[in-house]
C-alpha cells in the first residue's frame, strides 16, 4: 500500500542536488508539515542528507571497557537507537537505515546471537506503538535467514504492516543483511525475468535490489572509529559521504549525530566531479 509515487523513477525525477551548488529545497512529496529547519540555505552549506545510514559499531568494546559482558553493550545500544531515530526525524532526515546485524554476525558465539535475537524482539515490541505514533514507516532489510526465530520474524512482519501507512521518516533496519547478497539477489531476479544482457543498465539493476524505492545513502556514519564498509548496502553507498566518529555506539548521542549532519553539510559533494544522480540513474 502506498508504494505508488515512491519508486526509483520518481526519485530520479525530483532533480535535486546539483553538485557544489545549493540544493533546491526538496519537495515534501507526502505533504509532511513539519518541514526540516534550515535545510539547504546559506552559501557553502548543503541540505540535510536525505538518507542517513548508521553502522552501529562498538557495543562490545563499550562493555569490555566497563568489564561487563558483551551483551550489556548491546543492551546499552537500545537507548542510542531510540535517541537517534528521534533526532534524525526531527532534523528532517527522510530515510534512516540502521545496520543492526550482518550476515557475518551469525558467526558470533551462539549465546550472544541468541541474546541479540531476544533483545531485538523486546525492543521491537516495546517501541512499536511509539514508532507508529511518530509516523515512522519501519521495514527490515534482509531478515530472510531461517535462523531468525519465527516469533521475531513475525514481529518484524507485524511492525512492517503496522507502520506501512506512515508517511514520516522511513526507518530501514538492516537485519541479517549483506550488501553482496543483495547484489546477487538482484542479478538472480534479472536472470529469472529473462532480461537480455544488453538491456541491463545501472538503473534497471537498481530496481531489482530490495526496497528499490530507497534512495542512495547520502551520509554514512560508522561509530567507534572503525573505517570499513563491512559489506553494508554496497550498491547504495556508492556516493555516500562517510564520517567515522570515535565515540562508541552506546555513547553516541543526539549532539554527536547532529555533528555528523553538520560535517556532511559542509562537505563539497562532487560525485567524482561527474554530476551523476543516484541509483545509477543516467544524467
Amino acid at each position: 500500500m502506498g508504494e505508488a509515487g515512491w519508486g526509483v523513477n520518481e526519485y530520479g525525477a525530483t532533480g535535486r542536488t546539483a553538485p557544489g551548488g545549493v540544493a533546491p529545497d526538496t519537495v515534501d512529496r507526502d505533504g509532511r508539515s513539519d518541514g526540516p529547519a534550515g535545510r539547504g540555505t546559506g552559501a557553502g552549506t548543503r541540505a540535510v542528507p536525505r538518507h542517513v545510514a548508521c553502522v552501529m559499531d562498538g557495543n562490545g568494546r563499550w562493555a569490555q571497557r566497563r568489564s561487563l559482558p558483551r551483551t550489556a553493550g548491546h543492551r546499552a545500544a537500545e537507548a542510542t537507537v531510540i535517541e537517534i531515530i528521534e533526532t534524525a526525524r526531527s532534523a528532517g532526515v527522510e530515510w534512516l537505515t540502521l545496520y543492526a546485524f550482518s550476515t557475518e554476525n551469525w558467526n558470533r558465539p551462539g549465546a550472544e546471537v541468541d541474546y541479540l535475537m531476544r533483545l531485538v524482539r523486546r525492543v521491537v515490541r516495546k517501541h512499536a506503538p511509539l514508532l507508529l505514533a511518530r509516523g515512522i514507516r519501519c521495514r527490515f532489510l534482509g531478515a530472510t535467514d531461517p535462523r531468525i526465530p519465527r516469533e521475531l520474524a513475525r514481529d518484524f512482519d507485524d511492525l512492517t504492516t503496522l507502520t506501512d501507512g506512515n508517511r514520516g521518516m522511513t526507518l530501514t533496519v538492516a537485519f541479517d543483511h549483506g550488501g553482496r547478497r543483495d547484489i546477487v539477489e538482484a542479478a538472480r531476479s534479472l536472470i529469472r525475468n529473462g532480461t537480455p544482457a544488453g538491456e541491463v543498465t545501472e538503473h534497471l539493476f537498481a530496481q531489482h535490489l530490495p526496497f528499490p524505492d530507497t534512495p542512495d545513502v547520502d551520509l554514512a556514519i560508522r561509530t567507534s572509529g572503525e573505517q570499513r564498509i563491512s559489506n553494508f548496502m554496497l550498491w547504495k553507498v556508492a556516493y555516500a559521504e562517510w564520517t567515522f566518529p570515535e565515540v562508541l555506539w552506546p555513547d553516541f548521542r543526539a549532539p554527536d549525530f547532529l555533528a555528523c549532519l553538520r560535517t556532511y553539510r559542509c562537505r563539497d559533494r562532487r560525485f567524482g566531479s561527474l554530476p551523476t544522480r543516484t541509483n545509477g540513474d543516467p544524467r
Binding site: 500500500m1 524482539r121 523486546r122 521491537v124 515490541r125 512499536a128 506503538p129 507508529l132 526465530p149 519465527r150 516469533e151 513475525r154 514481529d155 512482519d157 507485524d158 511492525l159 504492516t161 503496522l162 506501512d164 501507512g165
Partner: peptide, 24 residues
C-alpha cells in the same frame, strides 16, 4: 488494511509467549 494493522498492533502489544512455537 486497517484490520491487518489492528491485529498486528494487538500481537505486538500483547506480552510475548514464553514457549517458542513448533518448528515449521
Amino acid at each position: 488494511g486497517r484490520m491487518k494493522r489492528a491485529s498486528a498492533l494487538l500481537r505486538l502489544i500483547t506480552p510475548p509467549g514464553g514457549t517458542p512455537g513448533p518448528d515449521p
